[in-house]
Amino acid sequence: MVIACKHVWTYISDYLDGTLDPEVRERVQKHLEHCEICSAILDSTRNILILTADDRVFELPMGYSERLHARLELALHEAAPEDGEVSQAP
C-alpha cells in the first residue's frame, strides 16, 4: 500500500522515536527511500532534535532579533491579501 507524503509527515516524530507500529514503519521507510522531500524533512527534523538537545548556549549577533522581526513583518505584509480581496483557504 502506497503512503502519501502528508501521512509520512504526521509519522516523522514517531518514526524518529521508534514508536511506530512495525507495519506503518515499513511503509514509511519504503516511502522515504524514494521521496527526496520527505527524506529532507526527516533529516531536518532529526537535526532540529539534535540541536535542541544540545545544552550549549549561542549568543546571537547584535541586531539579529530586530532584523528577524523586520523580515517577518515584511513577509506577513506581503502575504496579506489586498484590501477588498478575498482570501482563499487551501
Rank of each mutant, 00 (worst) to 15 (best):
K6A: 05
H7K: 15
V8T: 12
Y11F: 02
S13E: 00
D14E: 14
Y15D: 03
Y15K: 08
G18F: 04
L20P: 07
D21C: 10
D21N: 15
E23F: 04
R27E: 01
Q29K: 15
K30Q: 15
H31S: 09
E33Y: 08
H34S: 14
C35K: 08
E36Y: 06
A40N: 10
I41V: 10
L42N: 03
R46A: 03
N47S: 02
N47T: 02
N47W: 00
L49T: 00
I50A: 08
D54E: 06
D55L: 06
D55G: 07
V57T: 15
E59S: 08
E59V: 08
L60M: 14
L60R: 05
P61W: 04
M62G: 07
G63S: 12
G63N: 13
G63M: 08
L68D: 13
H69W: 11
L72D: 03
E73T: 13
L74Y: 11
A75R: 13
A75Q: 11
H77Y: 13
H77K: 15
E78R: 12
G84D: 03
G84Q: 03
G84F: 05
E85W: 02
E85D: 10
V86Y: 04
A89R: 06
A89I: 10
P90Y: 06
P90N: 09
P90W: 05
